[in-house]
């Protein structure tokens, strides 16, 4: 295949990847509006983002095709993968601690059960 044909293939692949990434970003926005409570909205905010961002960066890399900038894109993807779970976890923990989690929407809630159990144990242990 000639250089021109490789360029076209790369452009097509890049277009497909960009489209996929944008689709996942849309899904994230729709999820943020539709989901009923804080924890589910957190899923919408972090999950499609990971794959969506990876796809967009792959699309960009296919378009740039050369240069050191491509390696910085790898770095962006790695940063996103390392930090998105941490952000999701901290927001979820803060939600539990400030009472923003609606327990009636959860099928099973073992964390609240365990928190209540430890609180009860603390109350029992305290000398009267």
């Amino acid at each position: 295949m000639t250089q021109d044909q490789w360029t076209t293939v790369a452009d097509v692949a890049s277009a497909v990847c960009l489209l996929g990434g944008a689709f996942f970003a849309l899904a994230a926005g729709v999820g943020a509006v539709r989901f009923p409570d804080l924890l589910s909205r957190m899923h919408a905010a972090t999950k499609p983002q990971v794959l969506g961002l990876v796809l967009v960066l792959v699309g960009l890399a296919l378009r740039l095709r050369e240069g050191g900038a491509v390696w910085a894109l790898v770095l962006v993807a790695v940063f996103q993968m390392l930090t998105a779970p941490v952000a999701a976890h901290m927001v979820g923990r803060a939600g539990f601690r400030t009472g923003k989690v609606r327990q009636d929407l959860l099928v099973v809630d073992e964390l609240s059960r365990d928190l209540a159990a430890t609180r009860r144990a603390d109350d029992d242990d305290r000398p009267d």
Binding site: F23, R34, P36, K47, P48
Partner: peptide, 26 residues
């Protein structure tokens, strides 16, 4: 897993008239 589950979450978000029921497990 990442690819498969991203599609699943997007479908749950975009499926009309369907609210997900969550759970916290230990």
């Amino acid at each position: 897993d990442l690819v498969r589950a991203s599609f699943e979450v997007s479908l749950v978000a975009l499926r009309p008239r369907y609210t997900p029921r969550g759970a916290v497990i230990c």
